[in-house]
Nucleic acid binder design. Structure first.
Lengths: 214, 214, 214, 214
DNA sequence: GATGAATGAGGTTTCATTCAT
DNA sequence: GATGAATGAAACCTCATTCAT
């Protein structure tokens, strides 16, 4: 066989990666055997190892893919909504995450739970997680600063603290979703935070008006 | 040999459980072998299996212990602070969680990451997680309702949505802590949310005053 | 099961070791699979790995056993024959080697070939080989010095060179035996060297007598 | 595509063979993978298999090449030194072996260790070894007979036994060299044997003179 | 009741070889 | 003729669990 084109190589690699993701979503990293990934992908053991030198590499790539889709979702939402509140954007991010992770109807957000756990054992996964979540958190912080500077939040607002709190919604809602099931309404959670923001904004305006009166 | 007294039985069981927890905190459930638990506990393999019929049972018990300490923390905080805001109570809960999980200086909050992941594989762990987080969420909801009914939040406040959002802080901050390390200041996150609450409260009062004026 | 006594432990370990030696003698280290050793020994895989943590350890132990028997043979021969010529002792050593390595009629001297080869790949085997052959060579050197000092060899004899040459007989004859088969008569080789020694001794005496005459 | 000329074919084959020899010298036959040979040679897997139908064939050819160089060394030495003692010729053979095996500074005498070991597993390698060493031994025997017939050794000398003993020097010194390293002085070993020969020759002459006197 | 040696299914990975291009 | 991606049997080793003592 002649040398694979780059696209053909990437396509085969992606096929294996997505097969692995289906397995990982069902059973987590460590309860998925390479034999299962091999069976799911339909290629030979040797081929899987040609594209991913070890199970750890496959886990790393799968985790990176999932967190990468989350980051993509954030990028899209942040880019488009210029004048929207951070919570509104986060809501869109959260919806996009689900869309990005379900191109075929299978839930891949569970894999995030496996990534968090794996990061405690594998330094490369930890680094990958740190990088992805560092970037993601930076996006959230931008939203907060932009909103505060537009006058919707008091100037005294602690952008870092608020970014941390808003970021927490994403893993926090994923965990609740998987732990408590359908009874969790993440839309309502965003609505509640939005109401808080609205109240805070009103108070901020009132304070400003009062300051101007004097 | 004579039958073990109940206390002796419970004491040996706890000893094994805590040994297992140390291992699980270091390496997660699946990278901890029973041999390691056995070595850490200093008892024989046969003994471990007398108190925990299988590794799955040991994982279940360890997970339950960790989530139970979280629930304890919530109970204490909810019981004591009658007139405090939900955020203030959550902050205390979060601090208590760390205290409860570090009786000996070792961090056991990581085990929560393992529990979330394990729940996707083991129905009993999923049920245990659902029960614990259901209870915990109910506590949070009580805080919200109490606070709203005391007039600190608009009557229109969606208690379920807000409870979901506040609950999200706990796993959300734990994940950020383990992913991003020391740069995450959970205290600042609580502070930021508290500021939002304060703003919302001011707005709520203003609205009420206006309503009364009419 | 209660703790194994030291003898029981050693006995089981020896059983596995000898099973492995049979396999190694037939096929060499690398063409013998652990599965074959396991089948030959009749115990489980886990048991084999309890006594030998890895295949490399089993190879090391097997090699050490074989070279140890050679060293034993040398020790016995050196201790007993006080007044015999080095060649006569070497001949006995060579015969003893065969006896020591064939307690059950199976030839285990081939394993030496595997050890030499393995030493080029495994540092521990190399160290073990160096130690065993260093000791063995020291024994040969003692024989030479003793014989020279007893006046059977010229005082100018290079003990190190002669020791190296005599030592070479052992691997040299083993290789010829395995390469060329039965047509090799190692007894005749020792006889030829013995004749050389006798000639050299006569010459040495003649030289001394002449020196005294003057 | 046009048929390869015989020279082109042989040239490519030799290139692959020498690449394999470099690998075999470094790691032995069984720890060298075909992938390593392929990488070292810079040609494709398919090409390697065109010139050598299997790894066993490559091993056979490599072994034959190494032993062939040894035989070449013996032929040259035997042809040139007509009046030299067998030991002197062997010394030259030994030096030539090293020259022949180090055309590029890499030691290929280790491969001999692999060949001896492989012969216990592969009948074709065994036959090749037997042929090469049979030829080599015949050369050594010629030296001995020639020397004895020239009157340097007693007529009673056992040519076969002495040939076996002298032949043993070659593998015996190679093994010691690889096992014990630089502390082995093969030149000294030849010197010591040469001294023995000299002594034996003196004794032989004395005996003859005495016989003539009578 | 406690012990710990033994079990063996199953895990990950390698590698000699083939054959479509 | 040459290429190199694909194959899959088989390698080494682990580990949850059992049960004779």
């Amino acid at each position: 066989m002649p040398k694979l084109t780059d696209e053909a190589f990437a396509s085969r690699r992606d096929h294996i990666l997505w097969s692995a993701l289906r397995c990982f979503a069902r059973q987590g990293f460590h309860s998925t055997s390479m034999a299962q990934v091999i069976a799911e992908s339909g290629v030979s053991a040797g081929s899987v190892y040609r594209y991913f030198p070890s199970k750890a590499d496959l886990i790393l790539a799968a985790g990176d893919w999932v967190l990468g889709r989350v980051l993509d979702a954030a990028d899209e939402a942040v880019a488009i909504r210029d004048e929207a509140s951070p919570v509104a954007v986060m809501r869109v991010v959260f919806e996009r995450i689900h869309e990005n992770l379900h191109p075929d109807g299978e839930d891949r957000s569970v894999v995030a739970l496996s990534v968090w756990q794996e990061a405690t054992r594998d330094a490369r996964v930890a680094a990958m997680l740190q990088h992805n979540y560092g970037e993601l958190r930076a996006r959230v912080r931008v939203l907060v600063v932009r909103w505060r500077d537009a006058g919707h939040l008091p100037v005294s607002t602690d952008a870092d603290g608020l970014a941390t709190a808003l970021f927490a919604l994403i893993p926090g809602l994923i965990v609740q979703h998987h732990a408590l099931g359908a009874e969790i309404d993440s839309g309502a959670a965003f609505g509640a935070i939005e109401a808080l923001f609205a109240g805070a904004e009103a108070a901020a305006h009132a304070a400003r008006d009062q300051a101007q009166d004097v």
